[in-house]
Amino acid sequence: MEKFTSHTGIGVPLRQSNVDTDQIIPAVFLKRVTRTGFEDALFSSWRKDESFILNQEPFNRGSVLVAGPDFGTGSSREHAVWALKDYGFRVVLSSRFADIFRGNSGKQGLLAAVVAQDDVELIWKELENHPGTQITVDLESKTVTCGNLVAPFEIDDYTRWRLLEGLDDIGLTLQHEDEIAAYEAKRPSFKPTTLPVRN
């Protein structure tokens, strides 16, 4: 995974709560078997509306999405994260993320930063009053800078460390292969196995 330390880019105000993953990427796009090439799928229903924020200059060149509370609810589809990244987003700011979406983001190097709703409201105003305003998100200091506003954000320490170092989870876990094997050796025999098939 690519390291993430700091990012600066155009902020996109998305004044909506409960942006579920079916909106971020409708199910019809989940039929693909690849991990990339989802940029056209991002918010595809909403993008058919000309007034949608991503159809407006300069927001169509944005890379920091600023959304309402409960972003990424619903389906576990990691495609939602892939679509945001493929479009060009590196950061999503919200006062609350759905657990699975936040986890998926952390695995893929998309920073899901939790910002207080009062600060989200201030950032929305700034972005609407001055379209094209750049937002800087610094993972070292855990701060968001937008115009004159400098706000803190929250992220769990483990995800932050992995993002800063660009570490791959599977590689980290396999360093403890001996402990996994030791655990397996003492699992109770009544636990089920899928093989051999029983009818």
């Binding site: 990691e78 699975i100 695995k107 876990t173 396999l174 996994i180």
Partner: peptide, 20 residues
Amino acid sequence: MGIGTSEVEHVMATQTLPLK
């Protein structure tokens, strides 16, 4: 628990998940 595709791969490779 429901998991994302990166975690699916993690479970396939290690039969474990790092969880808070």
